[in-house]
Design a protein around this nucleic acid. Sequence first.
DNA 1: ACTCATTGTTCGTTTTTCCGATCACTGTGT
DNA 2: ACACAGTGATCGGAAAAACGAACAATGAGT
Lengths: 305, 305
Amino acid sequence: MSRNSFGDIRVFVEVARRGGFRAAAEHLQQAPATVSEAIQRFEDQLGVRLFERSTRSVALTPIGEQFYARSLPAVSDIEGALSALDEEKDEVSGTLRLSAPYSAGPFFLDDLLARFAIAYPSVAIEVIYDDRKVDLLTSGIDAAIRSQTLMAPDTHAVPVGPELKMAIVAARGYLDTRGTPQHPHDVLDHDTICYAFGRGDRLAPWGFTRANGAFVVQPKPRLIANDMRSLLHYAAQGLGLAYVYAEIAAPYIAKNDLVEVLGSHLAPMPRYSLNYQSKRHMTRRLRAFLDLVKNVSYSSGTNVS
Amino acid sequence: MSRNSFGDIRVFVEVARRGGFRAAAEHLQQAPATVSEAIQRFEDQLGVRLFERSTRSVALTPIGEQFYARSLPAVSDIEGALSALDEEKDEVSGTLRLSAPYSAGPFFLDDLLARFAIAYPSVAIEVIYDDRKVDLLTSGIDAAIRSQTLMAPDTHAVPVGPELKMAIVAARGYLDTRGTPQHPHDVLDHDTICYAFGRGDRLAPWGFTRANGAFVVQPKPRLIANDMRSLLHYAAQGLGLAYVYAEIAAPYIAKNDLVEVLGSHLAPMPRYSLNYQSKRHMTRRLRAFLDLVKNVSYSSGTNVS
DNA sequence: ACTCATTGTTCGTTTTTCCGATCACTGTGT
DNA sequence: ACACAGTGATCGGAAAAACGAACAATGAGT
């Protein structure tokens, strides 16, 4: 296929539709010479005459008639798709206002909002990082991300953010020396390697589950880092227990470089809730964001560094 | 709309379909840089991001998903139309062999065959000008144009060539001097202005009709020309009776520059018959020619010069 | 018959697109 | 942790397309 068959087909259809080169050129906002030359190149490349023409008129050949009949609906559909795109683009604009906990940003929300911003260049985004309760009715906030679903009138929630399994791992040598923890609180008696958010001012708590619910334990760490691969490295060197994403620990475990402990006691990282009011007339930007949230797939092994 | 939106849509659909720029480029037989730059220009022009991409992967944005869903069927249809065109072009080939009377060529057949040749560049055309009876079964002729329908087994006929009304006209002054002819044979007693085919070696007979059929009269002309407008000019100068197409005489009659005589006696120019055998497996080229013949409209005021 | 407005076409110049080579980045495999 | 294969992007030069101006031809109107 030549450089621009699709463009040529559009020109062809317009000439056939309007019965002349100059009328088509006007509609296409091109020079008449451009249309004439484009059709000539197209016919040469196809090895077929689509139009017969004299110095004052133009008509489709029989084969041109057939091609026109097949092309016109498709060209019309593409024109419709372009119009719909234009309408969609124009209507998704304004400012999207979100409230979210501090931890959500580096965890997944920054990436999510970057994707939304790319997809909808006409939308401005405001994120207020705040852990307090928010009243969606009066606050001017479009949606609030929290660890829990908000219980408020007309408020709906959808899960947002990745779901991650966690693991506690240690080197075999370390366990031989210090013993294997049997219960969650045992970790307090061990050297621990913890993940630190940002510049180390906030530590990730270790989440566990038991019959009557979930709870967290916050060990005093021997080592911290804001990159889970570093945590794995330290653990493999026998420096303690590390609380990390199960997915990135898996290769080490498979190689017996690390051993998982307390596996059945660990709670998966809970997904956040995106809480919003289900108004009759929801803004296009909020609806677009909800669509993105519902359909997004988080890349496996999300990097929270 | 930009210079090449349709071409860009085709590129866009291919990238989405194949999940990457390089794979799409390979299919489109373009350079990866070409695809990358085309998508960037397209997104800039639309004011919309269709893809999000990192240095190693690419995915549709939500708005890109919608646009893709709408565009893909249309792009597929256009690809199908192009394929069908290619097949049609390739299958209409070989040699079309016609037999026709001498008079048909300059009258309409030359123009008709020129249009067919333009529409189907891969078909060779052989015309044998011959007035004799032809046997379509044994002669190797695809179709025979004759004044009459051939009565032969499995032979069909369709009308071909324009249908034209004729008129005999003269200046009022001429008629005042020489009298108005009352019967067709009276024209033999008049100065006549006749149409000559080609270089004047063949004259057009004057056709009449009466109760028991049609007949022709061939006057000895005082003036001849191979352009009917010349014939009209001479008649208007009072030089005799002219036998011409009614359509081009009409303006002169309307202005009383010329007067029509023997109007009710004139036979319309009969349409020719295109005779062909209705075989089970008709060649594509013959079928294409029949399609052209059936659908062609002859330009009004056909110039037989 | 003649004039004129309008058509499609041509061609030299300008503008835009395509491409090869290279780069920066990333995910996979070891 | 590191090397490497493969990705999308960049950029200067080459190639192709678009255009303005002018031309030849034609049909309508007088």
